[in-house]
């Protein structure tokens, strides 16, 4: 065997440090609660309700991103126009803004003092302390992940396929549904996973807009504040476990149908 250079050992040790850094706290947290405690926690109505609320608000955020983000992602992938860079930076803004600031910003326009707040309150929509508010916040923080992922997906499809389809008599709509969508749907699924994963982990912005109804991260925070580490851990374990399971199912579903296609 050839002798490895010091550089090689440096890369390896840095990698090991990072692995330990990520895995140690997670393993500790996952293994800390006893089995009976986990069982007791999942019977707790508040815990179940908050995890369910987390999952379906994040799912809704992903759905909204899918409906509105897909056409935008397509536009960004296929056209070049003046100010495209600006549009792209605006889409990335929610990633770089501190989370509590997002909450404050959204509350700012949702209040009675703002014309937008007045319009939506006339319509009977409440942002502060409502499920609607949670979905709005989660969509705000999750949307960039969807748009960017799907934009890359569209860019990977040759525009010539669409051109050929048009020349063979298909309208733009037919072309999109017969050619572009079947080739891009997997990147849309990845986008949905990225978006909902980001949404489900949001805490800072949600707690400002809606402490109640309580999503799982807020509940974990509350248990930690009121009863300490030991009581917050089991809820965290369940949240992580259920999220991983959901994403795993999505991944398996997409890759298995993908293999059949190939």
């Amino acid at each position: 065997m050839t002798k490895r250079e010091p550089f090689f050992w440096i890369t390896i040790s840095c990698g090991l440090v990072i692995m330990a850094f990520i895995l140690l706290p997670l393993i500790e947290m996952m293994t800390a609660p006893s089995f009976s405690m986990l069982k007791e926690t999942i019977k707790d109505k508040d815990v179940l309700r908050s995890i369910w609320l987390s999952i379906y608000t994040a799912g809704l955020a992903a759905l909204i991103s899918f409906v509105f983000g897909t056409p935008l992602a397509y536009l960004l992938a296929r056209t070049s126009f003046r100010g495209k860079r600006l549009v792209e930076s605006i889409i990335d803004l929610p990633i770089v803004i501190p989370h509590p600031v997002v909450g404050i910003a959204i509350l700012g326009i949702a209040g009675k003092n703002h014309w937008f707040g007045q319009i939506i309150s006339e319509l009977g929509i409440r942002i502060m302390g409502s499920v609607t508010g949670i979905v709005v916040v989660l969509t705000f923080v999750g949307m960039p992940f969807y748009v960017n992922t799907v934009k890359n997906g569209f860019e990977a499809i040759s525009p010539r396929l669409e051109k050929v389809s048009r020349s063979l008599g298909a309208s733009m709509f037919s072309t999109f549904f017969r050619i572009t969508f079947p080739l891009a749907w997997r990147s849309m699924l990845v986008g949905i996973i990225m978006c909902s994963a980001r949404a489900i982990s949001e805490f800072g912005a949600v707690i400002i807009v809606a402490y109640h109804p309580m999503i799982a991260p807020v509940l974990i925070y509350e248990r930690f504040e009121a009863y300490g580490l030991k009581y917050s851990q089991p809820v965290a374990v369940w949240l992580v476990f259920i999220c991983l399971l959901l994403f795993l199912i999505l991944r398996v579903l997409t890759s298995s149908t993908g293999e059949k296609k190939a």
């Binding site: 040759s158 010539r160 396929l161 389809s165 020349s167 063979l168 309208s171 050619i179």
Partner: peptide, 16 residues
């Protein structure tokens, strides 16, 4: 393009 009755064959074939 879909109303022109012109077909196109590209160098990279562009098969679906």
């Amino acid at each position: 393009p879909e109303k022109r009755g012109i077909s196109i064959v590209y160098q990279d074939h562009a098969l679906f």
